[in-house]
Nucleic acid binder design. Structure first.
Lengths: 219, 219
DNA sequence: AATCTATTCTATTATTTTATTGAATAGTAG
DNA sequence: CTACTATTCAATAAAATAATAGAATAGATT
């Protein structure tokens, strides 16, 4: 009787995962939650939607078991269920970046528009740190830095960079990073740094990309 | 002007990929195409849908650049665009298998129903081959074997197994594999083999899982 | 107990997706 | 050229999804 429903039933279940990730805002939510836990209210501002809509999308992610919730006082904090969820979204992004001409056009246009000359990846980072003295700068909001950051990084949120720029040493190349390739905080930071004649470069990857890579290396 | 549309536009594009994979039949199609190229007609039989519906789903996959087409005579053959697509679907499956209780229930029930006692994974395979003499048996249709198979495997499609069972050596443990964990051909094969007193075990993984693992190892 | 706050739920409307059917198309073979 | 085949397209109806606004809820604070 249960002869060949196996495939149907399992694919049905699996499609709940892909379906949950099939909406752009939900992809964005998972990417955000890869950084740290957020309240619904915070998330709604980040993704620029009403609280009610944000909540709806979070329900979908929760029903697919991609995120979990935890109440803390008045707030309900959403967090990613597992690093494997971040890994899946990363795989989607890499597939898109490597194979989708439209995405490449969007990013190329953006870089041209922002006069971004040089960016480096995590793979380049090690090589660069051997050639010259570098300082790794985390420009995300401080609570994200505290929830986890790339080893050796120093925290100055981009919002405070102008007034705290004196804290930075001269004579080192500053590598600024934020949430990842779709986050513009490091773009902003590099612009500020270069205006003050600091040698600064943007790291394409963010904290979660580094973390996932660390885990891979330890296997 | 293009100040902060970057994220929106890219997530929009990325969601085309996840959206294409958000339907159970389309997941199944991609899994099938991981084995070899198929015509629309063949695929429609495999996934048990009308040719028109199958074609529609294939258009969706094609629009998301997950598959490509090539005409050969009267037929149009669909193939997977890239191994990274198979890798993505594998990641979805692994996430589902590891974290979704419902999927585990479905599979446990299925195994109980079929009296399946022992299955092994690719990781177990090497260890087992050192302990005892084994024969790796590919029970998929022969054209799939010819399109690519696990190194050292011998082909006897499950449909021919009963009459060709004499070709198999006695005294070796037979490890039967097919398209992967959701394919029942190896289940069937093991049942036939055990009925004839051959020591036989089912390999959970299939050809594509092996191939992706090989690629990983070579990096 | 009453109030306040963050989140979720409900109802509604507009939009998108899906399966089905039958017609149209592109290319093959006679 | 004609008939044939595999595939795609087009039209339809049913179902699912999404955004919105406002009501309801659960827990914290007073």
């Amino acid at each position: 009787m249960a002869t060949s429903n196996l495939k149907e039933e399992v694919y049905q279940e699996l499609s709940r995962v892909t379906h949950a990730l099939s909406h752009p805002k939900r992809l964005e939510l998972v990417d955000l939650l890869s950084q740290k836990a957020f309240s619904v209210d915070e998330l709604s501002h980040e993704i620029n939607m009403t609280v009610a809509s944000t909540s709806q999308h979070l329900q979908v992610l929760k029903a697919a078991r991609l995120v979990t919730t935890q109440r803390e006082g008045n707030f309900i904090f959403y967090r990613i269920a597992d690093d494997s969820v971040a890994r899946l979204v990363l795989a989607v992004r890499e597939l898109g970046f490597s194979r989708n001409a439209e995405i490449n056009r969007i990013i190329t246009d953006f870089r041209a528009d922002k006069n971004i000359l040089e960016t480096i990846t995590l793979d380049d980072l090690l090589a660069k740190s051997k050639k010259e003295k570098i300082l790794l700068l985390d420009v995300r909001p401080e609570d994200e830095y505290q929830a986890g950051h790339i080893e050796g990084a120093v925290s100055i949120p981009v919002s405070q960079l102008k007034k705290r720029i004196g804290e930075l040493p001269k004579g080192k190349t500053i590598i600024a990073y934020c949430r990842g390739p779709l986050c513009v905080m490091s773009v902003e930071a590099v612009k500020i740094l270069q205006a003050k004649k600091y040698p600064a470069v943007q790291l394409e990857d963010g904290y979660m990309e580094w973390k996932l890579k660390q885990e891979e290396l330890s296997h």
